[in-house]
Design a protein around this nucleic acid. Structure first.
Length: 307
DNA sequence: ACGGGCCCCTGTTGGC
DNA sequence: TGCCAACAGGGGCCCG
């Protein structure tokens, strides 16, 4: 459930079903799912068992739940100094389901609670995602250590539009590469990058150094609009891999204007949407609406035609 | 230091 | 029908 809207849907689900509860048991079913927990599987489990989960945070595509361990005397309030961190990768799901429900084929981690209620299950077909426990680094809010290089996302009120524009100006790369760079702006993946670029009428290969402030403002507005609209529809789901904590799909796939629409007419101008290879994936765009890559740059990116 | 390329996995799909 | 290459929403690491 990869991009920001889908991860936010999951965060809200965790807020409703997991926050306030205390972990009783943890079962790691596949070691690769906890590979980012360097101290190992047993340490991962030990740090979780007995911890209470007061809140759930998200930055970009990462989720984390601060862990509060009960103090020596009952009722002692403790500050969380570490957190359970999760990334869904390409195919990860966090599902809330009754303890009796049959294990999913790709169940990787099971977390049970002291109240005996629904479990939290991490299910991940491709195992690009994972869970790990890490110390929190002080900040607003405190962030797990390995997330300190992740930029704030566009729905974060503290995202700095001017700083983002300045960063684009000094980069020497294409616009979509910059959008996908989680250290510049987080939460944007392949789908919403293409959708935002279509909305802002910008070419994916436009050199970032050529952007003027109004271009950046239009782009950021488009990213915010498309993500907000997707969130309202529960995110984008093409199949059962991308679901909320209750296993339900979102409906934003019907609202996509560029992604996956190769060969179909642009809804703005009727020109056929084109698909081009991009970084081992694909870029979808309207060749008429999104013509802003300079001719020199486009030429230079074609193998064997560098002038 | 920074950008692009490659790899980590499993499953589905479409062409021959 | 079968086989196999291409492709899939991500990111970390290595290399130049």
């Amino acid at each position: 459930v990869p991009e920001l809207p889908e991860v936010e849907v999951v965060r809200r689900g965790l807020e409703g079903h997991v926050v306030g509860r205390t972990i009783a048991v943890v079962e790691v079913c596949h070691p690769r799912a906890v590979r980012r927990h360097v101290a190992g599987e047993a340490d991962f489990v030990a740090r979780l068992v007995g911890a209470e989960l007061p809140t759930v945070h998200r930055r970009g595509k990462y989720l984390w739940l601060p862990l509060v361990v009960p103090g020596p005397r009952a009722g002692d309030a403790q500050e969380a100094d570490e957190a359970l961190v999760g990334h869904l990768g390409m195919s990860g799901q966090l599902l809330v389901c009754e303890p009796g429900v049959a294990d999913h084929t790709h169940l990787r981690v099971r977390i049970g609670f002291t109240d005996g209620g629904p479990e939290l299950r991490f299910v991940d077909q491709r195992t690009f995602g994972g869970l790990f426990v890490e110390p929190l680094v002080p900040g607003d809010p405190p962030v797990p250590r390995s997330l300190t290089h992740i930029a704030r996302d566009v729905l974060d009120p503290l995202f700095d539009d001017a700083a983002f524009h300045a960063a684009l100006r000094v980069r020497r790369t294409g616009l979509k590469s910059a959008l996908l760079d989680q250290s510049l702006i987080s939460g944007v993946g392949n789908i919403y990058a293409d959708e935002a670029l279509w909305r802002a009428k910008l070419h994916y290969a436009r050199p970032t150094g050529t952007l003027r402030r109004p271009d950046t403002d239009r782009l950021l507005a488009a990213v915010r609009e498309v993500m907000t609209a997707a969130l309202a529809l529960g995110g984008t789901s093409f199949d059962s891999l991308y679901v909320n904590v209750n296993g339900q799909s979102g409906y934003f796939d019907r609202s996509l204007r560029a992604y996956g629409r190769a060969g179909q007419p642009c809804e703005r101008c009727g020109t056929t949407i084109r698909r081009e290879p991009f970084a081992n994936r694909s870029s979808y765009f309207c060749p008429r609406c999104q013509r802003s890559a300079s001719a020199r740059y486009v030429t230079a990116t074609r193998p064997g035609e560098i002038h």
